[in-house]
């Protein structure tokens, strides 16, 4: 324990050690060491280093530490993969397509249908262990994104699904697309005799692919976030240390 404390005492700034090192070491030798002294000496060394550093070095050090921590977290954070399908829409009434799509999605992605996929694919096993199935359904719906392409008057739409396993993401995306295609076909057959309801045709332009790279975590975004957090922390720390700073005394 005493050797650890002496080693930690080496972490103090060189100027501080030149002034207080010998008497500090004498104190560590004289006193019966305790476990909490390790934390106390380490914390004291860190504070003294901060005091000895200039503000710019504190901010820079914190910024670099922020980037390092954020990038390290990005390596251990659970990955998420996105699979997507592009579907083009053919219809004579382009004005009504937004409303038609919204209705189709509402009917197609009913809680019953989503529940059946969750159970069949055994999705979100750890989440389902601690939450009711209805919450897992909400979670899955958050991971499904159906968005129009080409602005307000879509010539198509994209069906996306995000999941930690790329193969499952692809399989589920295909199931979602099949459901929407089947529902559209059923609607077309039901409306075939009604001229007031023009036929809407879906065509898969780009089938659900097997995602190769995760969409989360993005290391670059984590790095930027860590840099920002580090800079803010460094600025706060520099201000705090600055208010307590005085000149490092010389013996004599």
């Amino acid at each position: 324990m005493r050797r650890i404390l002496k080693w930690l005492a080496q972490l103090y700034p060189a100027a501080w050690r030149a002034r207080y090192g010998a008497e500090y070491e004498a104190l560590l030798e004289e006193r019966e060491p305790r476990v909490r002294d390790v934390v106390d000496v380490a914390w004291g060394a860190m504070k003294m280093q901060m005091t000895a550093w200039g503000s710019a070095r504190i901010v820079l050090g914190c910024a670099l530490a922020g980037v390092a921590v954020a990038v390290a977290i990005s390596f251990v954070a659970p990955k998420k993969y996105l699979s997507q399908t592009l579907i083009s829409v053919e219809t004579p009434d382009r004005q009504a397509i937004d409303k038609y799509l919204a209705g189709l999605v509402k009917d197609g992605l009913s809680p019953e249908f989503v529940t059946s996929i969750i159970e069949r694919e055994n999705l979100y096993p750890s989440e389902r262990a601690r939450m009711p199935l209805s919450d897992a359904v909400d979670l899955m719906r958050k991971n499904i994104l159906i968005r129009a392409v080409n602005g307000k008057q879509p010539s198509g739409f994209v069906v996306e699904f995000v999941y930690p396993d790329p193969r499952v993401a692809q399989r589920v995306d295909k199931e979602l697309v099949s459901q929407l295609m089947a529902l559209n076909l059923g609607t077309a057959i039901a409306n075939s005799s009604d001229p007031a309801r023009p036929r809407v045709t879906f065509r898969v332009d780009h089938a659900a692919d097997l995602p190769q790279r995760p969409v989360f975590p993005k290391r670059s975004l984590f790095g930027v976030g860590g840099l920002f957090a580090g800079l803010v922390s460094g600025l706060i720390l520099a201000v705090v240390v600055g208010t307590r700073r005085g000149p490092m005394v010389a013996k004599g």
Binding site: L5, W16, Y20, Y24, L27, L28, R31, R36, D37, V39, D40, V41, A42, W43, G44, A45, K47, M48, R244, G246, P247, M248, V249, K251
Partner: peptide, 20 residues
């Protein structure tokens, strides 16, 4: 703790409130 004590000693000496 030793770190706390010498943190205080350093600061007090800088402020001129104690002297070796």
């Amino acid at each position: 703790g030793p770190g706390t004590l010498y943190g205080a000693i350093t600061r007090l000496e800088e402020l001129g409130w104690i002297a070796p």
